[in-house]
Design a protein around this nucleic acid. Structure first.
Length: 909
DNA sequence: CGATCCCGCCAAGCG
DNA sequence: CGCTTGGCGGGATCG
């Protein structure tokens, strides 16, 4: 079979062979690539695609997916570790969907096919651990699954949002296409859009360099400027008001009028000098240009909402005076493509505007807004803001919010905002923005905040707070942020927009802060309502931990913490960016980075450094331990489920804890979101991650803990934060954030050492909807291999014991569990954080499910090193493949549930 | 039925 | 001439 598969694959992707080439080419990449290669080609065993991502897409979950169905739980892993079948699946998955289908038809993968059934319970067959694989295969690739947005997420998951300057990531189109199981053509669509934002640049044939989001703000700034110059805002206003017909006419005129697109081209041009290939000449690049223009529309729009039709009209090439219908249609199609990518980047989200005419599809900008101001300004803002806000105040707010949530279930952002001083005001920079005063509508905030799970993922990849530098803190201030929207309740549904809580995507936390100030104005005419699908999503989010910080983010956070609230100014130094060409700033590109502003480099250096340190140094303060979930549910847990969860009252969360924001990580049962994030870690190198990740992702109930070592700041205290469950959000915010919703445990590391800690959250219980969903996995054993200390933590999701029920009476079991942890406001400042990205992860043993509790970590020595470092691990995230396998095997043995986590010893060291 | 947008043909650009 | 890119639009899906 395998052979066959391969063959098919080959057929499909004739180019694949290149992979090897890559490897050869790029040393750095080589690792990744190799890995990648291995998987895909060499080692059939490992699942090829494991992109972490899958999550439910932003969009909806189609029935097909069975999102709802909880996943099967534990079993799957247990089941065969690695069966030939699995391999096969992998291969297939790697192959194009078609093939997969084909295979299915054949019935090769029975188990897979039956996945659904499996959910129900039977699936032992499920292949090994990588549920992800299963997913792919199994699910018939519904259209959505194949969607560009999802694909983009997967794509993004592969790379760090904020890559270190040093690491140059090369993107091989072939490789990517192969790994993602899509045609190259699709990759072009993604890359082109990313290129328009300078997230990537073309290095050579088939090769793109990944820059990450370092220069995103700058780019946006430039685009904004351009947009203003182009008077897009006016055009939009005009078009929106006009009747369609008129619009068309006008539209044609407009273009003529004066907004020569020509300029755009130049401006836009992504082509970098560096890279030959991107020649401006090239005829097209229309997609890229269009993408930039599209973004500009948002940037210049006060409402930050752009309807598709208007965008299409404006973006249509001037070439045609009269936009013919067909053309228009085509444009719209492309816009969707672009929008999908932007959505994946968490820059926009889909909404609908209600106009006289009716609802119209539109997109709302949810990305950073402040970029208009110089970075510095931003920083300032955040800084100023923070001080103003008293932590206590924040806390109070949160508490209030929580209470509300608890009671009502919904939290209205607006209120929060009100309470909080509007530091936002401070935003000097963007004059154009509307005054907040006007509307004060929470909508905006909410929307901004709102992130799709997917997005989140994306974000996770992408955004680093720090880079924005200061952002973190700023974000924190945002009242909303802390409480993510837990608003689960019905109301929420009703008016998602209103209720949405801000989740801070790592991405643009800053934006939030800014936004607070800005917020407000939603065009009256425009009603931004989350689309149906969306609405659902948000809800989900609410339930979930809103923010989960992607590993990357976390790292970033850590870094920032270490460094201080305002990390280096360097971060963005680009204030100067004024160049026309938005693109100008490219972060380091693989090939030639000349341009990369030094600042940027510096910045990168810093942050990344942090990360690296973590890797290297090994003592990263923070580590996230996520127990992998046995079950992998295939799908992302149904969001809906989450929604249910969302209802959970936050109540008590320890309000006081200020622990680092970093902790935000949740494990969440909720799943999907989280999971996706988790994927991030994989992002880098790994190209894919182990299936587990996916699984983890998918599975809701995983418990994830963020383990914070007692770095310098703490006296030997380690903080263990449950990633999962609590609805609260841990703000990513740095320590500043007053309250984290996340329950955490502080353990004196030394103390602990000797003693095992048992923590059993009631976790999942309920799991909301999904029956199978949460498996509780058995107790999780955390071992701190730490050198000296080797405290072990046992966590039993099932919850056997609840040490301290503490405060919350809450119904939520989950919460309780969380509560049990003692909290202390300690803020760990971690020195270094490990990057998720870092290869380390690969090696990292990650949580393995082990029957045994103790000792031996499964991981190989090498891995151990890694351990030392802290790491951020996601539940299935990337362990080595090998590891995974082991895990899977182990898991077999063990009840599926149990996982053994190793935590780097805290202080020890 | 309109909104979305996947799929892949096919041509421009380039070596 | 072949390969990389990517415009483009038919037609399938989704909601």
């Amino acid at each position: 079979m395998e052979v066959n598969c391969l063959t098919l694959k080959d057929l499909i992707n004739p180019r694949q062979p290149r992979l090897s080439d890559f490897v050869a080419d790029d040393g750095e990449n080589a690792q990744k690539e190799n890995i990648f290669v291995d998987r895909s080609r060499m080692a059939p065993k490992t699942p090829i695609k494991n992109e972490p991502i899958d999550l439910s897409k932003q969009k909806i979950f189609t029935p097909e997916r069975n999102p709802i169905t909880p996943v099967k739980l534990v079993d799957r892993q247990q089941t065969e570790p690695w069966t030939p079948t699995a391999n096969l699946k992998m291969l297939i998955s790697a192959a194009s969907p078609d093939i997969r289908d084909w295979e299915k038809r054949k019935g090769l993968f029975r188990p897979i096919e039956n996945k659904d059934e499996a959910f129900t319970g039977s699936l032992q067959l499920r292949v090994v651990g990588d549920s992800a694989v299963d997913k792919f295969e199994k699910r018939r690739p519904s259209r959505k699954q194949k969607s560009l947005g999802l694909l983009c997420q997967k794509f993004l998951a592969r790379y760090p949002s904020y890559p270190m300057s040093t690491e140059k990531t090369t993107i091989s189109l072939d490789e990517v296409a192969l790994s993602l199981g899509v045609e190259r053509r699709r990759i072009y669509d993604i890359v082109n859009v990313l290129e328009s934002l300078h997230l990537v640049s073309r290095v050579a044939k088939n090769q793109y360099g990944w820059h990450g989001r370092h220069s995103l703000l700058q780019t946006l700034r430039n685009l904004q400027r351009l947009g203003e110059e182009q008077k897009y805002e006016e055009q939009m206003a005009y078009l929106q008001q006009k009747e369609p017909d008129l619009m068309d006419c006008k539209f044609g005129e407009r273009k003529k009028d004066g907004y020569p697109d020509l300029q755009d081209q130049q401006l836009l041009d992504f082509s970098e000098p560096d890279y030959p290939s991107s020649s401006a000449n090239r005829k097209d690049k229309s997609l890229r240009i269009m993408s930039q223009k599209f973004v500009m529309l948002f940037l210049v729009s006060k409402t930050k909402i752009v309807t598709l039709d208007v965008a299409a009209k404006i973006l249509i090439e001037r070439s045609q005076d009269a936009p013919d219908h067909s053309k228009f249609k085509t444009k719209v199609r492309r816009l969707y493509d672009i929008a999908n990518v932007l959505t994946s980047l968490a820059l926009i989200k889909k909404v609908h505007v209600t106009e006289e005419r009716g609802r119209k599809p539109a997109f709302k900008w949810i990305g950073p807004v402040d970029f208009s101001s110089s970075d510095e300004e931003v920083a300032d803002v955040s800084a100023s803001v923070l001080p103003e806000m008293k932590r206590e105040a924040c806390i109070e707010i949160q508490d209030c919010a929580k209470q509300k949530l608890a009671r009502h279930g919904s939290f209205n952002t607006v209120q929060a905002s009100e309470r909080i001083p509007r530091k936002a005001n401070s935003e000097p920079s963007s004059p154009s923005r509307e005054e907040q005063g006007s509307g004060g509508f929470s909508l905006e905030i909410g929307s901004l905040a709102t992130v799709y799970p997917q997005k989140i993922e994306d974000n996770s990849q992408g955004k680093a707070f720090d880079n924005e530098r200061g952002m973190l803190p700023s974000s924190t201030p945002d009242p909303a942020a802390p409480f993510p929207a837990h608003s689960v309740d019905s109301e929420y549904y009703a008016n998602p927009s209103v209720h949405q809580v801000v989740s801070a995507p790592q991405a643009d936390l800053q934006a939030f802060s800014l936004q607070n100030g800005l917020n407000g104005h939603v065009g009256v005419s425009l009603t931004a309502a989350a689309s149906d699908a969306e609405s659902l999503k948000p809800v989900l989010l609410a339930g979930q931990p809103l923010l989960y910080v992607p590993s990357t983010s976390l790292f970033m956070l850590c870094g920032s913490l270490q460094e201080g609230p305002s990390p280096g100014p360097g971060a963005e130094g680009d204030s100067r960016s004024s160049e026309v060409s938005a693109g100008t700033e490219w972060p380091s590109t693989p090939a030639a980075q000349k341009r990369p502003s030094e600042e940027r480099k510096l910045r990168e250096a810093e942050e990344p450094a942090t990360k690296r340190q973590s890797r290297d140094g090994g003592d990263s303060p923070l580590s996230l331990v996520v127990p992998k979930k046995p079950s992998d549910s295939t799908d992302f847990a149904s969001p809906k489920t989450l929604g249910n969860r969302g209802s959970v009252p936050l109540e008590n969360v320890h309000s006081n804890s200020h622990p680092t924001a970093a902790q935000e990580v949740w494990g969440k049962a909720a799943n999907g979101f989280v999971s996706s994030e988790w994927g991030d870690p994989s992002r880098n190198a790994e190209t894919e991650t182990p299936s587990k990740e996916n699984e983890g992702t998918q599975e809701p109930p995983l418990l994830q803990y963020l383990y914070v070592r007692s770095p310098a700041g703490l006296n030997g205290l380690s903080v263990l934060l449950p990633g999962s469950q609590s609805p609260h959000v841990g703000g990513p915010s740095s320590g500043q954030l007053p309250s984290l919703g996340v329950p955490y445990m502080v353990l004196p590391s030394s103390t602990l050492g000797p003693f095992p800690v048992l923590y059993s959250p009631a976790v999942a219980g309920p799991v909301s909807s999904a029956p199978g969903t949460v498996p509780n996995t058995g107790p999780v054993n955390f071992g701190l291999p730490g050198l000296g200390l080797a405290p072990h933590l046992l966590i039993g999701p099932a919850a056997v014991v609840n040490p301290k029920p503490s405060t919350l009476p809450s119904a939520d079991p989950q919460l309780r569990g969380l509560h049990s942890l003692s909290q202390s406001p300690v803020v760990p400042r971690s020195h270094s954080v490990i990057q998720p990205e870092s290869p380390v992860y690969d090696g990292y043993p990650v949580p393995v499910v082990k029957l045994q509790q103790s000792p031996a970590p499964v991981t190989p020595k090498s891995i151990r090193h890694t351990h030392q470092e802290t790491f951020f691990k996601t539940p299935g995230s990337l362990g080595d493949r090998v590891l995974r396998r082991r895990e899977s095997k182990q898991s077999q043995n063990a009840s599926s549930v149990q996982r053994r986590l190793e935590i780097p010893s805290s202080g020890a060291d």
